[in-house]
Design a protein around this nucleic acid. Structure first.
Lengths: 401, 401
DNA sequence: CCAATTAGTTTTCAATCTGAACTATATGGG
DNA sequence: CCCATATAGTTCAGATTGAAAACTAATTGG
């Protein structure tokens, strides 16, 4: 007898409606809706919205921004917006860089800083130390902008246990079962720091801040090939929280061994290392090799062209299978794949047409426009969304404090 | 601005709790819990449960079944159960047979009948006519058992549009965009007839009535290879309702053309036709050929052994990819695969170990125990679940009638 | 036969939304 | 300048609903 659902109480109605109102304000975004508009948009009465908004304003999540005047007759409304005085720190640890950003509740990136850092093989504690320096900059920016930091989101290129703050496996960093202490980066932030997977966060960034559709597969070609599955405007995490491993879909049963222990995985054909190797580009940092690859492609070097063509072809195999299995009809390319999109796209589309004809409209294969801030925005966005989805808990916490 | 969520009203609490109570009674199943036990199980007060149960009893969904006595002191409770006087008709159209069953709200199969019928290429209207004869038997059984028929579920081996009652594509029946009128099979049933995919229904049958875990992939080897994805004790349907197409995962990029227009799909290696062909068993009906195959396997015929071994190997490729992508760690084999499990299993397990080492525990690869009634139970079960999940709507409807 | 125990009902209360009436503040025509 | 009109937002009565506690019902066991 699994004791699943909690009983409905009268008070639940308010929890839900607080979230509904907050979400409505968040969606309307720059339009800064009045209470009356929120009422119309949500289906609640003006009376209920007034009462709900009062709580949200008191908690500091929502602020009134002057009068709303549209030339019409009648009393003007008070514009409402998610407070720009509350923010979340987005953080990213990747193989060759660290990045930090400050995102306000409205989703505006108020501060952003990236530093190169060869993190592969570096001890997690050391990396966290470097990250703390960057976070200090973000804190300073928050202080000067009078932005209260509510929490943070930290994205890493690997599987994570969100609850226990453990990086279970990040092969490209050479990390395995590393216990982190991300909370210490932002002491005093009421919502703490949320650990997440880099590709999943990038997918969510695309969804919330990049204009992504309600359902899509996000494929990130970093050193590994990561993925994020967005279904119904939500991240599909899977029962154990590690769904979306597009890089380890088997695309050729006789393919080479993969770092995951399997064989024939997409990553062995379309990972950065695999592409560089096939293109015969072996020297330099990742950034330098990317430059060389782009130059070779521009010069129509046959090795480079074939390397990218093959990557696109196998990416097509993986996406055809995934799209069929999960019934998804849109794909967003990120990371390395976004950079290579021009050359990758034709091979990918023809591969999709071969293995799953008619399944994906070419127009629904798009490239992320967020570039390097997508992961950051997504990591921070998860904390922002958690507030929008359960403001009641936040209200309670802020009332106690 | 997508107008998504409806506002929470005070009355929603009762809707939810009606469902909670009904679900609690359904789960407890044969134990026939008292109101006090339901209260303890749900977290509601006895007062609330009393009031909720009163509505459910009045509607006929729940019945009181005498006194509950356990030898303890104190007033005995009234046992509660889902009414055995309310039933749903499960129906299945498959390539070579038709089946009908009558399932009461408690999930008991009260009547079951199957007839052979070569439906491949037959006009849908003709098939529905034959099905109606079987349904008449089920109606008679319901009448003699004083069971009121609330609705029906009809499963077909193909993609369906549940809302419009259209079979979009059932290649093995040679049906394409066929408009059915399943409602006419059960006129007067308040909940109508729900059209569903065969593999999805079988997966749900396994979940509700076959003891399946909360998360698993169901693979049904019928003429085609179908699949159902169960996540969090619910069917994953996908944005367009056609998720779970395990049969069309690409398992070899140089594989043969598939009936779906693609190439290298699992179905071209592990579908019944493919296995029979590889085993060199070419004559007779599907049932006869299955007998021949089993005999050949028992006789250790090398063609037959290799055919099944290859099917298992490619099934492993597809399951490794799917399990990784969706983060699922259990598999249930149904249909043909259940019949062949003894020979299929070793190849499948070694394939899984090769392509996704450590991902699936061998113990979590199981065989469906429901045999041919799984699909039927699942098809009917969907209607039963819809009542359990929103009894309020049912109460309203039955009050109007 | 009565104390103890458990089941189920009744009563009172608080939370919360709806709907209608009311107040507040703007525009625009005479 | 003033007032009709229109829109925003607030206040208040009414309805629904579950929690909590008191109460009634039915059984066991000494």
């Amino acid at each position: 007898m699994n004791e699943t659902t909690a009983p409905g109480r009268v008070g639940d109605v308010r929890r839900r409606n607080l979230s509904l109102v907050l979400d409505s304000i968040a969606r309307t975004g720059d339009a800064k809706p009045s209470r009356a508009q929120v009422a119309a948009g949500t289906g609640l009465t003006k009376a209920a919205v007034s009462s709900l908004v009062a709580d949200l304003v008191e908690s500091g999540l929502v602020s009134e921004v002057g009068l709303y005047r549209d030339g019409e007759r009648g009393r003007p409304g008070q514009g409402l917006e998610l407070s720009s005085r509350r923010g979340v720190v987005g953080m990213e640890i990747n193989v060759d860089y660290l990045a930090v950003g400050l995102v306000d509740l409205g989703g505006n990136l108020r501060f952003h800083s990236t530093v190169e850092s060869r993190n592969r093989g570096m001890a997690p504690a050391k990396v966290m130390e470097r990250l703390a320096d960057l976070v200090a900059e973000a804190k300073a920016a928050a202080a000067s902008g009078q932005i209260a930091i509510l929490g943070g989101g930290l994205a890493v290129p690997g599987l994570v246990d969100e609850q226990r703050h453990v990086v279970l496996s990040a092969p490209n960093l050479h990390w395995e079962n590393e216990q982190l202490d991300p909370r210490s980066l932002l002491e005093g932030a009421p919502l703490g720091v949320r650990l997440s997977n880099e590709a999943n966060s990038a997918a969510l960034g695309e969804l919330w801040y990049g204009g992504g559709p309600a359902d899509f597969l996000y494929v990130s070609g970093e050193v590994g090939v990561g993925g994020g599955v967005i279904i119904g405007s939500d991240l599909y995490r899977g029962p154990g929280g590690s769904a979306g491993e597009l890089g380890h879909i088997v695309v050729h049963p006789e393919g080479p061994a993969c770092s995951c222990g399997g064989a024939g995985c997409l990553e062995t054909f379309a990972g950065q290392e695999a592409i560089f190797e096939a293109a015969n580009i072996l020297d330099g940092s990742l950034g330098e090799r990317t430059e060389q690859l782009l130059a070779a492609l521009a010069a129509e070097d046959p090795h480079a062209l074939k390397a990218v063509h093959d990557a696109g072809r196998y990416l097509g195999v993986a996406l055809a299978s995934s799209a069929r299995l999960m019934d998804i009809d849109a794909v967003v390319l990120g990371g390395h794949f976004a950079v290579l999109a021009e050359w990758l796209r034709p091979a990918l589309l023809s591969s999709l047409e071969r293995y799953a004809p008619g399944l994906l409209d070419p127009d629904s294969l798009t490239v992320s426009g967020l570039e390097h801030s997508g992961t950051l925005l997504g990591a921070a966005g998860q904390v922002i969304r958690s507030v929008i989805e359960s403001p009641f808990e936040f209200l309670l916490a802020s009332k106690l404090a």
